[in-house]
């Protein structure tokens, strides 16, 4: 079965934290001003993809 992961496009991300605020698993984190996605915690629910104003997040099959 292919597994999925949330990928951030750093060229699009404006480091606003909207994705952090909707994450139930606290997988997304603004470290200083850098978005980090903790794959151990992320369940690929896609909420952060929907909330991102900049279209900087997507779910990819890996």
């Amino acid at each position: 079965m292919p597994s999925k992961e949330v990928v951030v496009d750093r060229f699009k991300c404006a480091y606003c934290g909207a994705c952090v605020s909707v994450c139930k698993n606290n997988a997304n984190e603004l470290v200083e001003t850098f978005l980090v996605i903790n794959r151990e915690l992320c369940n690929c629910c896609g909420l952060c993809v929907k909330v991102c104003p900049m279209n900087a997040l997507r779910i990819e099959e890996v």
């Binding site: 934290g17 909207a18 605020s21 909707v22 139930k24 606290n26 984190e29 909420l47």
Partner: peptide, 18 residues
């Protein structure tokens, strides 16, 4: 801010729905 961690650490659920 909107990405608050302090609340969560201290037992206040600040996670927002869509």
């Amino acid at each position: 801010g909107v990405e608050s961690r302090v609340g969560k650490w201290m037992g206040i659920d600040t996670t927002l729905r869509l």
